[in-house]
Computed example of a mutant assay.
Amino acid sequence: MAAKLVYVLNGPNLNRLGLREPGIYGSQTLDDIGAMLVERGETLGFEIDLRQSNHEGHLVDWLHEAEDNGAHAVLLNAGAYTHTSIALHDAIRSIKVPVIEVHLSNPHLREEFRHKSWVGMAAKGTVAGFGAQSYLVALEAAATL
């Protein structure tokens, strides 16, 4: 049986993981997280397609592509676009593929401007606050969909 495709999309500044504010975001890099996801994905029957962009339009295009390619699910850490992007909100609502919002930190324990999530308002669910483990928890949730 062919593996089910799961897109793992990452927004602005997530290419700086491991360097950027490790007290908030941890010391693991995005490549480290990707390796964990690939390993766990294999046991769940998933093929992981990990991507990162600092450009909002790329994330919108990749959400559309996930549907066009018959993806099982999308894990989306939109970074700061979480709190500002109606375009991502609309893109999520325009596809049938379930999107799980992922955050390394808990936005509700941070600055007030991070408390509103346009992504979360359209996503199937949200996993936040567990560092790199947030991605693995989201992947496990995707397996139940």
Rank of each mutant, 00 (worst) to 15 (best):
G120F: 08
N13T: 08
A128P: 15
D49N: 10
P98E: 05
G26M: 05
L30S: 06
G18A: 10
E111D: 15
A35R: 14
G70W: 01
K116I: 14
A87H: 07
A132I: 04
E67S: 04
G125R: 00
D68F: 12
I92E: 01
V8E: 00
G23L: 08
L44A: 05
H83D: 07
W62S: 00
V119G: 02
E67R: 02
I92K: 01
I48T: 03
S117K: 11
P107T: 13
R114P: 11
M1A: 15
R16L: 15
V8T: 03
V119C: 03
E140I: 02
G125W: 00
P98T: 11
I24P: 11
G125M: 00
A128F: 07
I48Q: 02
H58I: 05
L59V: 07
G57Y: 03
G131K: 10
H64N: 03
T29V: 09
S94E: 10
G45Y: 05
W62Q: 02
V102K: 05
N54R: 02
A91H: 08
G45K: 11
L75M: 09
A132G: 09
A35G: 03
F46K: 06
K124A: 13
Q133L: 15
T126V: 14
R51D: 06
I92T: 07
V137H: 14
G57N: 12
G125S: 15
I86L: 12
A66W: 00
E111F: 11
G131C: 11
A128T: 14
R16V: 09
E101L: 10
V127I: 15
S85W: 11
E47C: 06
N10Q: 08
G45C: 08
L30C: 05
G120S: 13
L75T: 08
Y135C: 09
K4C: 00
E56I: 01
P98N: 09
W118N: 00
E47W: 01
Q52T: 04
I92Q: 02
N13L: 09
E47N: 10
A128D: 13
D32I: 11
